[in-house]
Amino acid sequence: MTTPTPTAGPAAALGAALTAEYAAIWAYGPIGVRLTGAARKAARDAEAAHRRRRDDLVLHLSTAGGAVPADRAGYALPFPVTDAANALRLAVEVEERTGAFWRAAVAATTGTDRERALAALVDCAVRATRWRRTAGITPLTVPFPGRPA
């Protein structure tokens, strides 16, 4: 998982957002297995939401005739997931990092592409807030979701 480059054109920015979605879907695997009950269900729902964004983007990019970045067999996690506490911390981080790519895509696009990117950033920020609540992290929100620290 990396951070977005700020000067990409629309197709490159959406392609970068797609790779972020691939990584998010992958990360929810190890996250989900460390969680139980409502938190595990929330992880499944979050993963499903990222899959919908991925499918939407693949369709959109291929219809536009541009390059569609390929998924990889695995992604480097920022830290190992060994228990529920760091699984929740990773879930927060996955949403923050994925949101950063969508924020970059907002700046690189206009019209319906921008609406789509903004909706995705909003979803990431709301899920990050829910994960912080589950993890007992305060404050629940950050002032500028998606902005590189």
Binding site: R103, L121, V126, A128, R130, L140, T141, P143, R147
Partner: peptide
Amino acid sequence: PADRAALLASVTAARAAHLEA
């Protein structure tokens, strides 16, 4: 414009997150 869109996107997302909070 592009140079303001990212900031406004973060403000929008923050407000949505406030509603969740």
